[in-house]
Design a protein around this nucleic acid. Structure first.
Lengths: 231, 231
DNA sequence: CAAGTATAAATTGTATACAGCACAGTATTC
DNA sequence: GAATACTGTGCTGTATACAATTTATACTTG
């Protein structure tokens, strides 16, 4: 299955937007960006329209496309939405996950954790997301999976910044994750849901500070931006 | 704020897709459709890319755009996602809604209900959605609002079909809705959440049958379709 | 000097052209 | 007669051109 130019551009652009390589609220110059990506404005605009629908960009008629804004309240909303999705997903997973799939997930997470004592922040974030996505996949609900993927991508930048500045590496599955997994194995939906809610809630508490740190990182020196004319 | 051609086309197309005026899985001919809508393929494709991201259409590289499929499992997934969103939203609403906003919602729903004893299925669906969207809006979480709007639009067709075939009109707020609203007024998050979960769960039970009815409605005579060449 | 206005430059919005790919329908061969 | 190769038609993918709109710049005026 050959992927089209639009798909390629879409993926690249989502990466740029997710990492705020467009600064928050900055206007995006289509000509400059299309040249950057080695394509014309037509497929670029198609890709950007997808990203608008996904909440990575915004669009104003006649003025063009802009990077999404980054504000504490926006990020808190994303965390709350994660609670909604994941708490329900873990309930469904209790009912639906086969013992084999559940065991496969736990084994996978343990392998990942032990493989990386050195643990770059990127790696730790990857492992955390693997846990959360893994649980939601066990719910077997493609809609929940789809929404959480989107939420995670939009929240990733802030979480990464936070991990880089605060958290400590460990070589095992975090206790909070373990609690959820144990409840899943025991098919105890209520306990699993509570544990998941508490875990995300704790991450949420740090979000506001993480946004502050993110801002201080964003508006320093200047690594290339695509938001103004190329000259 | 002048809205662009893309926005207009996007809105029209979302309506068509939501009502399955493209048949499930049918391929969409861009030239024919752009002529239909009085525009060229460029803005049409931009609009369709947004709809792909929103789950109304699918896209296969080299083959074009297709209407989303309609299957019982897909619809069940949507109902489950609604549970996730709305149960959490009603919890947040308990904490955050002002007494005034809560009262305003209840008054509004009561007015709507009493205004329409004759109650077309369309009207009843509108009222049901007004309740659910109203509660989620009280959560003040734009992310939850956005996701639920999307879910509702994608589920609407099936629900409407079902209402047309089964349910009875009434001139008051349904008891299930009343229960949620009472719990909200009492700021009893747990009861409100349970009531909401039970209510949507009951709707969900009918979903499989609703899809069957929907199919029987879709593949009869033939009111104009845009899925094949215009001749 | 500030504010507003006119003019020029740049950028977006959309139509169109054309290359390349997918698919159907036809002919050919065993 | 069935299967396969071939050819033609139509559709999608993308670049480009140009009109319309917005933004920046320079100038004028109080």
């Amino acid at each position: 299955m050959k992927q089209s130019n639009v798909d390629r551009v879409y993926t690249q652009l989502r990466g740029l937007a997710a990492n705020f390589e467009f600064k928050p609220d900055a206007r995006i110059n289509e000509s400059a960006l299309s040249a950057q990506l080695g394509t014309s404005r037509t497929p670029l605009r198609e890709a950007m329209n997808r990203l608008v629908a996904e909440g990575f960009l915004t669009f104003q008629s006649g003025r063009g496309f802009f990077c999404r804004s980054l504000s504490p309240s926006k990020v808190l909303n994303l965390y709350e939405a994660r609670v909604a999705i994941e708490v329900e997903a873990v309930r469904l997973a209790c009912k639906r996950a086969s013992d084999e799939n559940l065991k496969a997930l736990i084994d996978d997470l343990e392998r990942q954790a032990s493989n990386s004592q050195a643990a770059e922040p990127e790696t730790r974030l990857e492992q955390d997301e693997a846990f959360h996505m893994g649980v939601v996949r066990l719910s077997q609900n493609t809609e929940l999976i789809r929404v959480l993927e989107n939420l995670n991508e939009r929240i990733r930048y802030v979480r990464l910044i936070y991990l880089k500045n605060r958290s400590q590496p460990t070589a095992m599955i975090p206790p909070a994750h373990r609690k959820v997994l144990d409840a899943l194995v025991a098919r105890d939906a209520e306990t699993a849901a509570q544990a998941m809610r508490a875990h995300i809630g704790r991450q949420r508490e740090d979000a506001a500070e993480a946004v502050r740190i993110a801002y201080s990182q964003l508006y320093v020196p200047n690594a290339g931006d695509f938001t103004e004319g190329t000259k």
